[in-house]
Each structure stands twice: as C-alpha cells, then as structure tokens.
C-alpha cells in the first residue's frame, strides 16, 4: 500500500479541522482539547497535536490529510508533520485580519521546512465580514503566482476545489521540472 500526505495548516480557528472533516472518509482522528485560555475562547475546543483524515484512492494508494495545531505553543509539531508532505494548504480566516500576519509567518515557516507546492485557502468566504480575495492577497503579501482560493471549509465541493488546485500545482511543478 502506497501512502502520500498533505498538510493543512494555518492560524488558530482558521477552519483546518472542518476542512479535513469535509472530505475524510473516516471520522477525523482529532486531538482536541477544551480551551482554557480566555484570550483564545472564540471556540470551545482546539487541536493540540494534529487532525488526521484519510481518502482511499484505490487498492494501492491512500492520501492522508494532516491538520496542524493552530496555537503557537504547539508549533513543535509542525516540522514533524511537514516531513514528506506532497504539498500543503494554508487556511486563513477571511473574517479575522488580526490572524493574517500569523498566517504569513506560518506559510514562511512551512516553506522553510520543505519547498513543496502550496495553496492558500481563504476560508469563511460565505460570511459577510469576509475580506475580498484581492485585499487578502495584498494583506498577506502573496505573490500573484500563489494560488489564493475562496473556501468554505464545511462545504465538501469547496474543499475539493482547494485540494484539486493543490494537486494541479504539484503536477505543474513536476512537468516544469521535466522541461
């Protein structure tokens, strides 16, 4: 059995767990704990080690999706999770500009771990407070070549679109390497 993995990363409460849940064929193996810090109480629980989802491709191939913990104090997990990844997705909450700087820092950290293809998913685009994609691109200081995709993490079709774009990027990079 061959296995490959992709990593879903991003700041706290960006929607990483929801993203994996939307497409995983198994109940996501989540390592959530109740939040104790008042400052971070925008949700009840948070991922402390990793989320783990699976998509069986065929008899011979399985794709694993790993979600990283969003809180800074668990960032020692990031490097371990990034080892051997095919590519990664940076989730950003479009309604919380206060997390953009952290998202950029996470993106740079993962780029340093492995120069694999990646996409940025602008989550919660269905909410009225969501920033426009082009504004987010400027705020996140993303190169025009970086794919910044609208996303609603709890909608399967939206998550599929993000995963496909990442796979297209991986394929394009492989083909560019051949040329």
């Amino acid at each position: 059995m061959q296995t490959v993995k992709m990593v879903v990363t991003g700041p706290f409460n960006a929607g990483k767990t929801a993203f994996i849940r939307s497409v995983s064929e198994i109940d996501v193996v989540a390592t959530e704990r109740r939040i104790t810090s008042e400052a971070e109480k925008v949700k009840e629980t948070t991922t402390v080690a990793m989320d783990f989802g699976r998509i069986t491709v065929d008899d011979d191939l399985v794709l694993y999706l790993f979600g990283t913990p969003g809180q800074k104090r668990f960032d020692f997990m990031w490097e371990i999770l990034s080892e051997g990844m095919l590519g990664f997705i940076v989730m950003v909450d479009s309604t919380r500009p206060e997390t953009f700087r952290e998202a950029r820092s996470i993106l740079q950290t993962f780029r340093a771990y492995a120069p694999t293809p990646y996409v940025v998913a602008a989550n919660k685009q269905d909410m009225k407070d969501a920033w426009e994609l082009e504004d987010m691109r400027l705020a996140l200081r993303l190169d025009p070549k970086v794919k910044l995709l609208p996303c609603v993490a709890h909608k399967k079709e939206s998550v599929k679109a993000v995963l496909l774009e990442l796979l297209y990027s991986i394929l394009a990079e492989m083909e560019a390497g051949d040329a």
Binding site: Q2, V4, L171
Partner: peptide, 12 residues
C-alpha cells in the same frame, strides 16, 4: 500517482 489523486478527489 498525482493524476490518480486528482481523479479520486473529483469523484468524491
């Protein structure tokens, strides 16, 4: 392998 992944994700 990547093409198989693409086909599988499309079919989800």
């Amino acid at each position: 392998l990547v093409n198989r992944l693409i086909n599988r994700i499309r079919s989800l």
